[in-house]
Amino acid sequence: MTTRTPQELAVPVRGGDLAVTRWPGEGPAVIALHGITGNSLSFGAVAEQLGDIDLYAPDLRGRAHSAGLPAPYGIPAHVEDVLTVLDHLGLRQALLLGHSLGAFTTAVAAARHPDRFPRVVLVDGGLGFPIPGGADIDEVIESVIGPAMRRLRTTFPDADAYRALFREHPAFTAHWGPHIQAYVDRDLTGEPPEIRSSCVLDAIRADGAGPIGDPETLAAIHRPEVRGTMLWAERGVMNEPQGLYDEGRLAAGDLSPDRITTRRVDDTNHYTILFAKDATAAIAEAVRTELKEM
Score class of each variant (00 low, 15 high):
Leu9Ser: 01
Ala10Pro: 07
Pro12Ile: 10
Ile31Gln: 01
Ala32Gln: 08
Gly35His: 01
Ile36Thr: 07
Gly38Trp: 00
Ser40Glu: 03
Gly44Glu: 01
Asp52Gln: 15
Leu55Lys: 00
Tyr56Ser: 12
Ala57Thr: 01
Ala67Asn: 05
Leu69Ser: 05
Pro76Phe: 06
His88Leu: 11
Gln93Ile: 07
Leu97Thr: 03
Gly98Asp: 05
Ala110Gln: 02
Pro114Glu: 13
Pro114Lys: 10
Val120Ser: 04
Asp124Thr: 09
Gly125Phe: 04
Phe129Met: 14
Phe129Asp: 11
Pro132His: 06
Gly134Val: 04
Gly134Leu: 07
Val140Ser: 02
Pro147Asp: 02
Pro147Asn: 09
Ala148His: 14
Leu152Val: 08
Asp158Ala: 13
Ala164Tyr: 03
Leu165Thr: 15
Arg167Asn: 09
Thr173Leu: 12
Ala174Trp: 08
Ala174Asp: 14
Gln181Cys: 02
Gly190Cys: 11
Pro192Leu: 09
Ile204Arg: 02
Gly210Cys: 01
Glu216Asp: 10
Gly228Ile: 00
Arg235Leu: 09
Asn239Leu: 08
Glu240Ala: 13
Ala251Glu: 15
Gly253Met: 06
Asp267Val: 08
Tyr271Phe: 11
Thr272Ile: 12
Phe275Leu: 06
Ile283Trp: 02
Glu285Tyr: 05
Leu291Lys: 02
Lys292Cys: 14
Met294Thr: 14
